[in-house]
Nucleic acid binder design. Structure first.
Lengths: 221, 221
DNA sequence: GTCTATAGTCCGATAGAC
DNA sequence: GTCTATCGGACTATAGAC
């Protein structure tokens, strides 16, 4: 009993600190790159001494892999929408919405992923070859089914997926460039809404999918 | 006379070595990131002793800025097509072609740029604020003119530019991921042609621009 | 202009006290 | 489980011979 309680206490303390460190690491890795990030910077961002990081994550690389793991699982979840959809109009626009929301509110994960892939995925190649490959094939099948049913124009499904990934992740990865070109201000709520509508409209119309429900806003303006 | 000859000789030798070093640096910075790249790796890739790099480029940062400079000028050149175009059908499809060719044949420059912007442009912020801002505004004006003339649907010009940048640069920056999802093979000539056609078709149709000349290929297949 | 040898700095990781 | 102090290695940059 006592042991169990102790285990719970230390277990939750461990989980708490691990989550704290991973969140701090995500930001530092996004801002500095893997090699550029230092354990000291991550420790400062987490408000812990550097040695504690090594207590929870023995090496920098293991910490990094844990950050990637969190990012990748969020990515997979966002795509459940895809499977549940009735057709491309519903599925693609929900997926674009979800990806843009993720770019807006959690840009750091996307940045870490992009940095890693640009450099040839030296550390997370196994993710690409196992999980991402399987995921991509399953989504490609759905797109092919939609095409076969005549719900949208024919297109290489991977080209379409890359298209959506790049258009949406751009708003996370190139956040700084977009901000600079927007008079050094973050996009406003209205600008985000406009981006979402523009991208969905362009993709759905470009694919020959019938337009999103013809009255987009609820009421005013 | 003699002095002038000597100056030419040493001048061309200097230019030669500088170009050699910049090309090597571009690859190493793309593969390793700024912090991850070492002067030793760049020296090895250029086939020179490390001290010679410091002779031509006093510091790592100065070398890096020279790499960025080359990349950015190529980017600007690729966009001259834009200004010369009659309308969106011509201008956008030429621009997409040019950007995809650049992604295919010179991916390293795009990767270095992406890495830098993801990390908040710590070193080349002045480029974003001066050159890129001016460039973007001039292209946005052209797009707005096309819209005003009724040649394409209304869209925020910046959203359209980001769209094209992301879709095309994705094939450079995420080259490794695309290769992995393509059975660990680079895209073939035929696959590149398909990607180009798919992207142009999607963008032009999505924007309500009249379709690309209705018989795309010259002959066979 | 070229190259070797090294100075000086910073970082990942750990030992060991609490 | 927490933290300080430090080791050992790697890197940028330079001094100085050729």
């Amino acid at each position: 009993m006592i042991l169990s309680t102790q285990r719970n206490q230390s277990g939750s303390k461990r989980k708490e600190n691990e989550a704290l460190i991973i969140t701090a690491a995500e930001k530092i890795f996004a801002d500095m790159g893997y090699a550029g990030a230092t354990m000291q910077q991550i420790a400062d961002a987490a408000g812990l001494p550097k040695a504690n990081l090594h207590y929870y994550f023995p090496t920098k690389e293991i910490l990094y892999r844990n950050v990637i793991d969190k990012i990748f699982n969020l990515w997979l979840e966002a795509a459940d929408i895809f499977d549940a959809a009735e057709g491309p109009k519903d599925g693609l626009s929900s997926y674009i919405d979800a990806k843009l929301e993720s770019s807006r509110h959690f840009p750091n994960g996307s940045k870490v992923w992009a940095n890693e892939v640009i450099q040839g995925a030296p550390i997370i190649q196994d993710y690409l070859e196992s999980k991402l490959t399987a995921w991509t094939h399953s989504k490609a099948e759905i797109i092919e089914m939609w095409i076969a049913k005549g719900l949208m124009d024919p297109i290489n499904p991977k080209t379409l997926l890359y298209f959506i990934w790049s258009a949406t992740q751009h708003y996370a990865d190139f956040q700084h460039q977009i901000r600079t070109l927007n008079n050094n201000s973050d996009l406003t709520e209205a600008q985000w809404r406009e981006v979402k509508e523009d991208i969905k409209k362009l993709v759905l119309k470009g694919l020959g999918v019938k337009q999103v429900s013809e009255c987009p806003t609820i009421s005013d303006e």
